[in-house]
Design a protein around this nucleic acid. Structure first.
Lengths: 230, 230
DNA sequence: CGTCTGTAGACTGTCGACAGTTGACAGACG
DNA sequence: CGTCTGTCAACTGTCGACAGTCTACAGACG
């Protein structure tokens, strides 16, 4: 070991399947690949400049995550999202976040609260600037942080699947521009309840928070909006 | 369509990866493949009489399910189970089952109760006969049924992952022969609470039920019991 | 004309071979 | 002797080719 400890950028050498996975996942949750669209292996492999093997391995995982649906000998399709799917998604999300909030509020660690407050501040700033996209990104970070702070790694991996699909729903929904600043302020009481270690109130607030956004999306969900491929 | 409607047995033609998946999953959750054991692709492909491609696709899924761990270029290993893993597993299990019980108790459907009672009866009969293996199998079925009756398909897929890993823990634990008949009787109050639509009590009972079995396993968990390969 | 059967095309499923990466060990060098 | 540098064997990662399966359509048959 020499004394040379200059910080060099890490050279990524992830297997192709992982890079493909990231690309496809992102394309699906961002709504770029629309529900119902066929994912023909030879076509996509060519488009990505790779062979079918790593692509197939990535598709297996996406299938397991519920983002695509694979029927043997028939191919892979981006999963359709029904109203029921969305209701289930948000109800499970509520259950998972409730669990996380319970654990975080029970500890009421000041450092945790600081991190959450930081999210809130940034979100508010973005809201003042009218930057909806950034607000949404920080909103995601807020909830991801909540899960992370629960210190429950299994909850973390479970959450990541649910979270991705929520993100997809957000990308596909009929834009419903509520008061953007209100979105930010909705998070404040949750942080305060956690800060005070008031578990019961924190739980009630997070449930209301998730339920209201879930209801909003579900009510205005148009089953037919996700037609066919582009 | 002719009038010939004789019921013929379905010929299974599942892709190899799915059959391989079932075989490997079963081997892992039954404890046949022990934590820490290396899964060398060429070796297993040869042992199963297939090529590496479908095996690899199956391994991707097992990895995503948390049963194995894959490090790029280094291979796949059956995942180790730490005490923390077990605590997380049972706490998440409790959360998921609580959610399911809430939904089932809220409906308090008589048919649902009948199905649960049937599990109980069979479990009791097996317990009287001293057949621990059957008791465990029906115990699994009881809890699976609870989830199924919740009518929440996303909860179902989430449960199946957790459930599998619980099964693995059961297979690997230091056998702790409690009163076998007591296991069966523990389920009865839960069923009764559901029958009466007493959501709060049903929730409390299921949480106690899961927590007690979780604690029992976690307390007696010996980290070193899962050494190396056979 | 309606129904069944055969065929063609476009896919997915599977395979065997080759390329790339890793960790361990042996030898060069100070 | 301790450290660094090749080299090697055992794997995993990736590829292109072939085999198997499905759907749709066209033609035979009553």
């Amino acid at each position: 070991m020499t004394e040379n400890s200059a910080v060099l950028p890490h050279i990524e050498n992830k297997p192709l399947r992982e890079r493909v996975l990231d690309v496809l996942r992102d394309a699906i949750v961002s709504g770029e690949l629309k529900p119902g669209q066929q994912l023909v292996e030879v076509e996509f492999a060519a488009r990505l400049g790779i062979s079918r093997a790593p692509l197939r391995e990535a598709l297996q995982i996406l299938s397991r995550e519920g983002l695509v649906e694979t029927v043997p000998y028939r191919g892979t399709v981006v999963r359709q999202l029904t109203k029921t799917d969305i209701e289930e998604l948000y109800s499970l999300r509520s259950v998972l976040e409730t669990f996380a909030v319970q654990r975080v509020a029970a500890r009421a660690n000041p450092e945790d609260v600081t991190r959450l407050r930081q999210c809130f501040d940034e979100m508010l700033a973005a809201a003042e600037a009218g930057d909806l996209k950034t607000v949404n990104r920080i909103d995601r970070r807020f909830h991801d942080t909540l899960i992370e702070l629960s210190g429950h790694s299994l909850l973390g991996v479970t959450w990541s699947t649910v979270s991705m699909r929520v993100r997809q729903v957000m990308a596909l929904r009929n834009e419903r521009n509520t008061d953007i600043r209100q979105i930010a302020y909705n998070h404040l009481p949750i942080i305060e309840a956690i800060e005070q270690g008031d578990e019961a109130r924190a739980v009630r607030l997070i449930q209301e928070h998730v339920a209201s956004s879930g209801d909003l999306v579900a009510e205005n969900w148009d089953e037919s909006q996700n037609g066919d491929e582009s």
